[in-house]
Amino acid sequence: MRIIKIGLPILMIAVSLVFLISSFQIPKATLGSANGPLYFPIGISALMLILSVIYLVNELRNIHEKEEKLTDVFSKRAIQLIVVTIILGIIYALTFETLGFLISTILFLGVLLFYLNGWRKWLVNVIVTVSFSFITWYGFSQLLGVSLP
């Protein structure tokens, strides 16, 4: 878990550096104050850089302290579940507009439920998937007039 404890502040430093460097690349304004749009992002990313470095130093100092929470929460199965959800989300985003709301939602919700809830409770899964998809579709597109694909 050390990797995460140290990795995060390093990631923060990287993020603030990226923002800082690209802040300098913001085009000069042709109207009003030429550097107007630069100051704020530069100032904030510099502040964040300093804070991230302090954060890193703090973490390095406390590196030997045991934090049960971290080792406790990262089980392989849980991470797998999150990865699956994200992949499903991306597939959902890709199919949303081509397959339409109802079909893609039924697929997304169905697969996720079957994966998480197991095949044994298939009846609950199917009923929840279909009825929930249908009710939300009806509620949003028909009652609230939201245009869904």
Binding site: G100, L102, I106, L123, V126, F134
Partner: peptide
């Protein structure tokens, strides 16, 4: 039996859309 009914149900939803 349930599967049969479900198939009908899903079809109904699809036709409806």
């Amino acid at each position: 039996d349930i599967v049969k009914k479900l198939v009908v149900f899903v079809l109904a939803v699809l036709i409806l859309t």
